[in-house]
Design a binder for these strands. Structure first.
Lengths: 318, 318
DNA sequence: TTGTAAGCGTTATCAT
DNA sequence: ATGATAACGCTTACAA
C-alpha cells in the first residue's frame, strides 16, 4: 500500500534496522493512520521469543485470596511495568484435585511461549515446573526454599526471623511459648526454638494449618490444654488474626495475657485491631528482586542467589 | 523422523483432524519420548488465535494490594482453570505517571495476542481500553459501571446495597449518619440516602479516599466536628477498618457508640476485630461471571448484561 | 487415512 | 537505504 517492501516496514518498527529517518517517519505515520500493528504471533515466531513472563504459584484455594502471593505479584509487576513485559499468572492447584493445569503449563513453557518464568516454591507441582523450565532451557527464578539445588533462587531466612520472635518473647518476660503452624515449617520451628533459648524447653507445638479458622481453633484447644501459655508465634498473619479474634472473644487480653506474633507481614496485619506484630518477609522486595534476577538471566548476565532479610515488626499484638 | 508428514503430526494433536487411532497413538507416544511440543507461536499464527485472556484493571498503588481486584481475579481464574486458557494480568497505573503501559497493552490487543479481555471500570484508562478492544474486534467484558453503553457488562447494584445499609441503620435506631468515600461514589451515596429515608436529612458526607489511613483521618475529623454521629457507611472495607481502628484507639465503642458498615466484603473484613459488617458485592462471582460471559462472546453465543446482587452481611461492627 | 503444498505475517540475509 | 526472498513451524485445503 505504501509502495515499500515489508522488509522496510519491519525495519521502521525495529530499533536497530538501518533505515532513513524520513521513510521511518512516513511509515510510522501511515501505520497510525491505517491502524496497522505488527502481528505478535508472526513476530514471535520469526524472532522466536516472547515478551511474556510466567508467574506460577501453589494455590491454596479458589475461594480465598492468598495475601502472600499477591504481594509478591505486586513486586514483580512493578518491575515488569518498566520493562514492557507482560505477566501471566498461573495458579497451581494440587494435582490430586483431578486433571490439573500442570500439563497445559508444561506445554506452554515447552512450546516457547514464555520469555521466562518465576516459580514460587511450596508444593510438588512447583518442583515439577522447575524441572520443566530447566529442561526446556527457559530462564527461571525460584522464590522460596525448594529441595533442588539452584543458583536461580531468592529466599528469605525465616529461621532467623523466627529466632527474632523467640528472642523478643524472652526479652519481654514471657515463659510459656507456643508455635502454631503446619508440618512444613521446620525452618521456622527450629529458628523459634533457637531464639527462645532455655525457654524452648516448655515450647508447645500446635499444627493448626494456615487459615483464619485454624487460628481460632488453635486458640481454643491450646487455652484448654495449656492455660499457662503467654506468647505465640504463628506461621502466618491470617492464622494470627484468627487466633487473636478468638482470644479477644474469650476475654483474653492481647498482648497482656498472650503476646502474639505473626509471619509474612501481609498488608492487612497493620489494619487489624490490635495491629499484628509480624516477622516481615518483605514480599514486595521478594517479587521485584525475583523479576530483576530473571531479566539478568534472560540477558545472559551472571545471576547469583539472593537472600531477603527478615525483620521483626513490633506493633500492638506483642 | 517418524516417516509421517507434518500434516499428520498436526492432526494427531488436533481434536477434529481425521486420523487413524493407531497413528495418533504412535505419534503421541513418540512425541512424549522425544519431548516434542508444538510451537505455540506458529500454531497461533497459523490459526490466528490465542488462548490467553487479558485482565486489565486500574491499579491504585504499586505498594498496596488491591483486595477488590484480587478477589475478582480469583473468580476469573477458577473458570479459566477449567477451560485451559491462560490469564494475563495487566495493572493500569494512571497515565499521568509518566509514559504508562497503555500503549503496549494497546499494541498487544491490536496485534491479536489475546483471545479476549476483561476490563475493570474505574479510570479513564479503562475506558480507552474498551474502545481499543472494540475497535480491534477483540471480545471484551467490562466489570463495573462505565459511561459507555454496552451489552458486554457485568455490574453490581451498589445503590441498592447502600440503601440496605441505610435501612439497617434506621431500623436499629441510629439518627446521625455519615458517609465516607470518594467523589466518584455518586451511586452509593444516592442509594444510602434513599435507604436512610427521613434520617438522610442529617447525613454528613466526608471525602476520605479509599485507604486505611483515610479511614483513620476521617474518624478524627468527623469526631471533632460532628460528635453526634452514631453510624457510618464506608465506601470500602479498608476504609472501614481504618475508621474502626482509630475509633477504638479513641475509646469509642464499635458498634455501641458508632455502628459501621463497609463495602465489598473483602475477605479480611471477617478477620477484623470487630468483624466488619459489609455490603457484599460477591467479587468472586463477579469474576467468574465475567469470564463465563467472555467465553460465550468468544464462541459467538449471545451474551446479555449481568447484574450481580448486593447483600448486606451483618457481622460485629453494626 | 495420509501426503503435498499453500498460506499465516513477520524477521533476517542477501543483493542491489 | 531499500527490495527480494528464504526461513520460522505450524494448520488446512486439496489431492491421492
Amino acid at each position: 500500500m505504501l509502495g515499500v517492501s515489508t522488509a522496510t516496514v519491519s525495519r521502521a518498527f525495529s530499533e536497530k534496522g538501518r533505515i532513513s529517518e524520513k521513510t521511518r517517519q512516513y511509515i510510522i505515520a501511515k501505520a497510525e493512520e491505517l491502524g496497522y500493528c505488527a502481528n505478535i504471533h508472526a513476530r514471535n515466531l520469526s524472532s522466536s521469543n516472547s515478551n511474556i513472563i510466567g508467574f506460577f504459584y501453589p494455590s491454596i484455594s479458589t475461594e480465598q485470596p492468598d495475601y502472600f502471593i499477591i504481594e509478591i505479584q505486586l513486586g514483580i509487576n512493578q518491575v515488569l511495568l518498566s520493562t514492557g513485559n507482560l505477566l501471566q499468572t498461573n495458579p497451581m492447584p494440587p494435582e490430586s484435585q483431578g486433571n490439573g493445569p500442570l500439563a497445559s503449563y508444561r506445554d506452554y513453557i515447552l512450546s516457547g511461549g514464555l520469555a521466562g518464568v518465576i516459580i514460587v516454591a511450596g508444593s510438588s507441582e512447583s518442583v515439577k515446573l522447575v524441572e520443566i523450565a530447566r529442561a526446556a532451557e527457559v530462564p527461571y527464578i525460584v522464590i522460596g526454599h525448594m529441595g533442588i539445588e539452584t543458583q536461580y533462587t531468592v529466599t528469605f531466612d525465616n529461621a532467623i526471623g523466627a529466632a527474632l520472635a523467640g528472642k523478643y518473647f524472652v526479652r519481654t518476660g514471657r515463659h510459656h511459648p507456643a508455635y502454631i503452624g503446619g508440618h512444613l515449617d521446620k525452618r521456622k520451628q527450629k529458628g523459634f526454638r533457637e531464639g527462645l533459648g532455655e525457654t524452648a524447653a516448655s515450647l508447645i507445638f500446635h499444627t493448626g494449618g494456615h487459615t483464619f479458622g485454624g487460628g481460632a481453633t488453635a486458640f481454643r484447644e491450646l487455652r484448654e490444654k495449656y492455660p499457662e501459655i503467654d506468647c505465640v508465634l504463628c506461621a502466618n498473619d491470617v492464622l494470627a488474626a484468627g487466633f487473636i479474634k478468638e482470644a479477644i472473644a474469650g476475654d483474653v487480653r492481647i498482648p497482656e495475657d498472650i503476646a502474639v506474633i505473626g509471619f509474612d507481614d501481609v498488608r492487612f496485619a497493620r489494619y487489624n485491631t490490635p495491629a499484628i506484630s509480624s516477622v516481615s518477609l518483605n514480599l514486595h522486595l521478594l517479587g521485584s528482586t525475583a523479576a530483576q534476577m530473571l531479566f539478568k538471566y534472560i540477558n545472559g548476565e551472571p545471576v547469583t542467589p539472593e537472600l531477603i532479610r527478615c525483620e521483626l515488626i513490633i506493633r500492638e499484638s506483642c
